[in-house]
């Protein structure tokens, strides 16, 4: 399956919906979207990965790159993910300590509201 990307804003949070496979072929599109969002002043990003079928280290690199970009503006990049096969790669690489990972968009929005 190819990669489908969509995004919308809710208050100060920009939600990026990702569907499909994030790999060496498709990750550049996600990278471009994240860079574009940051360049347009969206510094609080929530990447919804509930419909992601596959994620590899190229995708992780893109997410870490996005995190660095938003942090340069005191922003945040957090994830929604409950799929064990996707969470596993975050655990193997220790990135569970780096990203806020939530079970749902609602849960992430609540946490974001508390942190504001």
């Amino acid at each position: 399956m190819d990669l489908k990307l969509d995004h919308h804003s809710e208050d100060s949070l920009t939600i990026v919906d990702v569907e499909g496979e994030i790999d060496v072929y498709t990750a550049p599109r996600l990278r471009e979207l994240l860079i574009d969002l940051v360049n347009k002043g969206n510094f609080h990003l929530l990447v919804n990965m509930e419909k992601v079928d596959f994620l590899d280290s190229t995708g992780l690199g893109v997410l870490v790159g996005g995190l660095k970009r938003v942090r340069a503006h005191d922003g945040s990049l957090e994830l929604v993910c409950t799929q064990e096969r996707i969470l596993k790669i975050f655990r193997i690489t220790g990135l569970t300590k780096v990203f806020g990972i939530y079970a749902s968009v609602e849960e992430a929005k609540e946490a974001h509201g508390r942190d504001k």
Partner: peptide, 11 residues
């Protein structure tokens, strides 16, 4: 991300 080139081998 550039430093993460060997992340794949770690995975």
């Amino acid at each position: 991300p550039d430093d993460m080139a060997d992340l794949g081998v770690a995975v």
